[in-house]
């Protein structure tokens, strides 16, 4: 006999899934941003071999389905290296690398958005390359990059839903479990969709607020 009604425990499952999705999103965003910025630095300093290598890697990660990357890491890597990988670890590795590729692209174009004349001015003032990056390029590039970053983060949140396919109990998997038990697809998937929608909204709003703060210095304040 199957118990097909919704119970209060389902709420717990939903919350757990929500927590896993949010935590994985946060972790991969932090790790991916760090790696992506490091890649952009390799390009900024024109590191031989590494800089073009990173460009190719980012292009490959951007132009292949995340699902295939996930399968490659989860099913392929353990066979190749003869190790064990939990679904959570595989998800963390894949999504961090994927986020890093997109952050890299955003960071490169943000750095390039700062005019060459400013770099030359900074050089004339005797700033070295790191100081120029830290004091001149980074603040402006951050303001420039936040718009695309907001779009990216909303997208990356949606990408986390794919980890349900390799067995991580995230929000989507929680939905699949509830769907299978209650056989009420409309209610279940509407609720899951709504939760994702609300999270996406929250991310977009946070980014918009951060952007207006970073751009504050250049705004007209009145006389």
């Amino acid at each position: 006999m199957r118990y097909a009604d919704f119970t209060s425990l389902d709420l717990l499952l939903l919350l757990q899934g929500l927590g896993v999705s949010a935590a994985l999103f946060a972790a991969t965003t932090v790790i991916g941003t760090a790696i992506g910025l490091a890649w952009a630095l390799l390009r900024y300093y024109r590191t031989p071999l590494l800089a073009p290598g990173v460009a190719v890697l980012a292009e490959l990660l951007k132009n292949s389905p995340v699902l295939v990357q996930l399968f490659l890491v989860f099913f392929g890597l353990p066979v190749l290296l003869e190790t064990d990988l939990s679904p959570e670890q595989a998800a963390l590795i894949t999504l961090s690398a994927n986020t890093a590729a997109f952050i890299y692209v955003i960071a490169v174009s943000a750095i390039e958005s700062v005019g060459r004349d400013q770099l030359e001015t900074a050089r004339v003032f005797g700033l070295n390359r790191w100081q120029t990056l830290r004091r001149v390029v980074a603040p402006q590039a951050a303001a420039f990059g936040l718009g695309p970053l907001a779009g990216l983060l909303v997208n990356q949140l949606q990408v986390t839903s794919l980890i349900s396919v390799i067995g991580v109990i995230d929000l989507t998997k929680a939905g699949a479990i509830l769907n299978q038990r209650t056989l009420k697809p409309f209610i279940v998937w509407t609720v899951i969709g709504l939760l994702y929608y609300l999270m996406a909204r929250l991310i977009a709003r946070t980014c918009a607020r951060a952007e207006s703060r970073l751009r504050g210095h250049s705004q007209w304040k009145g006389l």
Binding site: V154, T160, F186, G193, A200
Partner: peptide, 13 residues
């Protein structure tokens, strides 16, 4: 709605 909900959720729906 369709931009902010993951594709896999739309697909399962």
């Amino acid at each position: 709605v369709f931009r902010n909900v993951p594709f896999i959720v739309q697909l399962f729906f």
